Amino acid sequence: MQLLRDKVVLVTGGAAGIGRATAVAAARHGARVAINDLAGDAAVADCLAEIAAAGGEGIAICGDVALPRTAEQFISRAVDAFGRVDVMVSNAGICPFHGFLDMPPETLERTMHVNLHGAYYMCQAAARQMAAQGDGGAIVAVSSISALVGGEFQTHYTPTKAGVHSLMQSAAIALGRYGIRCNSVLPGTIQTDINRDDLADRAKRRYMETRIPLGRLGQPDDIAGPIVFIASDLAAYVTGAALLVDGGMFVNLQ
């Protein structure tokens, strides 16, 4: 069963990690896919090749999500290529781990601009297109378990992910009249480039694994599946919701 058959799906941060897994999963489920990323040509080309191998059609529109014009260009070029936008997956994000007391202003500001402002610009631009089309759509924002809990070296990151979660709640109210559903997915500890160095510490990695009732760290595909579901018509009455996908870490108090 192809849950996204004939839909046009846009994914930010689509060349690697959760974004790449989502783009490929969307293609496997029958979607035409447009990705946005700042990654190099090789990573983008590899992702497009994987989309094609999954039976899908894909294009890449590169640019910095922190800039409002990038969102406008992403939407307009996707519409030029595929005629419409059905699903926006706002996934692009960064987390340069750093202590609180000596946090450089430029690190804080860049994280805010990419993770929160970028999500706002992309979701707004997609919503404008969906509203103009007149037949609804779905927006899925990748938040984080960090929207619910703290992190010593994430004081700049956790507020952005809480903001993304809150953005989807408010957007669900603002866009419901247009038939546009807005939901967030909150991944737990997923092995991606964003935490590669942090998880290189074997003791920390083992500790994180012992915190998870399912006994393992997550993989990007573990998040792609729930995103496809929420974006699909199977979730037609789901909006303003947040789906925690963490292997049970959050509820494990021991």
Rank of each mutant, 00 (worst) to 15 (best):
G137E: 06
I139G: 01
I139D: 01
V140L: 05
A141F: 04
V142D: 02
V142Q: 10
S143V: 10
S143H: 00
S144A: 14
I145H: 04
I145S: 09
I145D: 01
S146V: 03
S146N: 13
A147T: 11
G150I: 13
G151D: 10
E152R: 09
E152A: 12
Q154D: 09
Q154M: 14
T155L: 11
T155E: 04
H156A: 05
Y157T: 07
T158N: 15
P159T: 06
K161L: 09
G163E: 10
G163S: 10
G163M: 01
G163V: 00
G163F: 05
V164G: 01
S166F: 14
S166H: 13
S166W: 12
M168D: 02
Q169C: 04
Q169L: 15
A171N: 00
A171Y: 06
A171H: 01
A172M: 05
A172H: 02
I173K: 12
L175W: 00
L175S: 10
G176R: 09
R177K: 15
Y178I: 03
G179L: 09
C182R: 01
C182W: 05
C182E: 00
S184L: 10
V185F: 01
V185W: 06
V185T: 09
P187K: 02
P187C: 12
P187H: 06
P187F: 04
G188S: 09
G188Q: 07
T189S: 07
Q191F: 07
Q191W: 02
T192R: 07
D193F: 12
D193G: 12
D193T: 14
D193H: 14
I194W: 04
I194Q: 09
I194Y: 00
R196S: 04
D197S: 15
D197F: 13
D197C: 12
D198Q: 15
D198M: 15
D198F: 14
L199V: 00
R202L: 13
K204E: 04
K204H: 11
R205Y: 02
R206K: 12
Y207M: 13
Y207T: 09
M208L: 15
M208H: 09
M208W: 00
E209D: 02
T210G: 11
R211E: 10
R211V: 03
I212W: 07
I212C: 11
P213R: 13
R216L: 02
L217P: 02
G218D: 05
G218P: 05
Q219P: 02
Q219F: 11
P220Y: 10
A224V: 01
A224F: 06
G225I: 03
P226C: 14
P226H: 05
P226K: 08
I227H: 01
F229T: 08
F229N: 03
A231T: 06
A231G: 03
S232V: 06
S232E: 01
D233G: 14
D233L: 12
A235W: 07
A236T: 11
A236N: 13
T239F: 00
T239P: 03
A241M: 12
A241K: 05
A242C: 13
A242G: 14
L243G: 00
